[in-house]
Design a protein around this nucleic acid. Sequence first.
DNA 1: CCCACAAATGTATGCGCTTACAATTGCTGG
DNA 2: CCAGCAATTGTAAGCGCATACATTTGTGGG
Lengths: 368, 368
Amino acid sequence: MSKKATVYDVAERAGVSIATVSRVLRLPDAVRPATRERVFDAVSELGYVPSGSARGLAERRTGVLGLYFPGFDASEDAPVLDVLAQEQGEAPPFTVEHASAHADAPHPTMLFLDEVLRGAELEAWKRGFVLMIGVGRDDPTRETVRDIAGRVDGLMVLAQSVPDDVLARLAQRIPVVVLSGPARGDSYDHVTVSNAEAMTELTRLALAQADPGRIAFLGGPEDSPDGAQRWDGFATAIAQVGLAIDDVIVLRGDFTRASGHTAAEQLIARGAPSVLIAANDQMALGAIDAFRSAGIRVPDDVRVTGFDGIEAAALSRPALTTVRQPMIDLGRAAVQLLARRLEQPDAEPMTVRLPLQILVRESSQRPA
Amino acid sequence: MSKKATVYDVAERAGVSIATVSRVLRLPDAVRPATRERVFDAVSELGYVPSGSARGLAERRTGVLGLYFPGFDASEDAPVLDVLAQEQGEAPPFTVEHASAHADAPHPTMLFLDEVLRGAELEAWKRGFVLMIGVGRDDPTRETVRDIAGRVDGLMVLAQSVPDDVLARLAQRIPVVVLSGPARGDSYDHVTVSNAEAMTELTRLALAQADPGRIAFLGGPEDSPDGAQRWDGFATAIAQVGLAIDDVIVLRGDFTRASGHTAAEQLIARGAPSVLIAANDQMALGAIDAFRSAGIRVPDDVRVTGFDGIEAAALSRPALTTVRQPMIDLGRAAVQLLARRLEQPDAEPMTVRLPLQILVRESSQRPA
DNA sequence: CCCACAAATGTATGCGCTTACAATTGCTGG
DNA sequence: CCAGCAATTGTAAGCGCATACATTTGTGGG
């Protein structure tokens, strides 16, 4: 790490001016092959790597796109890790754990975000951008996102991860794309999915496979926009098949497996339904566990559906009917919208709606 | 997006010099409360967000750390997606798929990287850094990683994702930390795990639960460093219990579920073993499938172990005994090493070895 | 062999910010 | 009420690069 080389160093070594060095790197064809070679040689001899900051400043664009997530990792309760402190002590190379239960799976929202991230990275790479990521934490002034905003050409934020006023201010400086939130009357570009429509269809499919009987809906927390949309979609389906919403048993969970289990127990106490539509996979799986414990068979006695398409839904027995989010495409679409706006800053705000994938599996099907 | 505001704009509006504006933002206590307020007002009125490039240039540090991954997404065969083209056409809000089989799970290496990324992000955030990510693709000149190197204060690379010569050159400019590769005689800081030691212990545990009989090892591809280490660990255990390595049946797969299935069929044809140690979870799960098809019970007839700790290993029946990588901690440790080196550029190169977690589950245990 | 013109290269400026140093202001005690 | 000093604020010089514009070099035709 000998003093970082700069254009000046390279220019001197190659016996040219800094302008020529810059040209060799940006527009190689604009410089004679002979000098070009000299410059390339100097570059590798010095291990020169251009400064992104200087370049960004001069070009007035950074070539970086930002992606900002809401955080679910509760940073405070992350266990302490200090590898430097261990330097001396010989830590054991492994620990042994007799784990009969299943491992603590990662938070599903995390998995969701991981894939969005991959999609965004892929698309950004294709267009010559690099990605910068940030996670929203209990950060009163939202410093991080502002920090990021200052370093990128465009910003993608997951709905609800940034307060409206902060976002509005950032949008004054760079284009902003909002991912997967409810379409509101703002002037940002949006990427969303048709939660309600897919839930309507899913519900219809499940009802078509069920014997007449009681219908139960297991919703999410009050304040979840996704939960609300899914409820709306469900309600639409109920209306479409000519039922009254009052005929439906509605329970509420918090999207966790445990809450699904509890809700199902309540249901069982009141007599098992013929169909259970859950607002996410976790709760559906918890409910299936509870049914099994009570000797109620899925799908034979109760048809069950989830929502999200997490891996456990595919691996569980019975395999869970669910709806998968086009996570990769959400990320890709966001980058595409951003790229579009960087080219046409004054284009009309646009909302892209990506299709969901309804996966019909065993849990919602009438047994053969 | 009215012309981005700069320090000059803020200074003029607040009636102060740009130096004062800068101070208000960096060292608020160094300026009188009255003027500080005036500046803050101007800042919010103008929606001012400082330019990361300019700041990075002036400070000679960017506050960004880079994370560079090998890519497994085969960018070429990513399906085309062009949301802008769809603008007019009304795409259906969902599709329905009757999926009896299990979904195509994400590449496990991806999941691994996702968690490393989260760990790195968490630790970076704690230290006031932002994270920039890049994925290594079929990019002849490794432009992307160089690009990133020019924008960050330090770089973390996954082993084998960057050619040695390129890495050496980047290390001339900024500190580099190598993740999870075999410790070689280079001068970078490293974060690794004790693959071999954990495999030795895992093997011993499995053998202790097995009846005397034939022992089989299902290895990975020839060129996999991880695979090699795991084999070494296995061989050590065999020697420790006084067996000859020639007594072991050795098969080789390519880390896929299918190859595990095939290998197990070959084993079965030659008479099922009493223990099967696989070099990763996928192959172990494939083998279990094959055993089941052949009417061979796990763990009753054959004890099986995997390696990696993927989610499917926990969800499968029988639950698979395996070894879990401390993925989050790998990311966190890498950032810690980077932070250390930024503070002490001349410290000795350091290798941190993180403990693995052996998860003893049903698949390797003697039935009660 | 010279001139007109194109290709190649050099010069100089500015991108927006931090910060050493200089200038000013506000307070203190005498 | 003023010297003397500390607290504030202003001035100006880069940070490393891209690029408009000026200059030099090279090319071809006459």
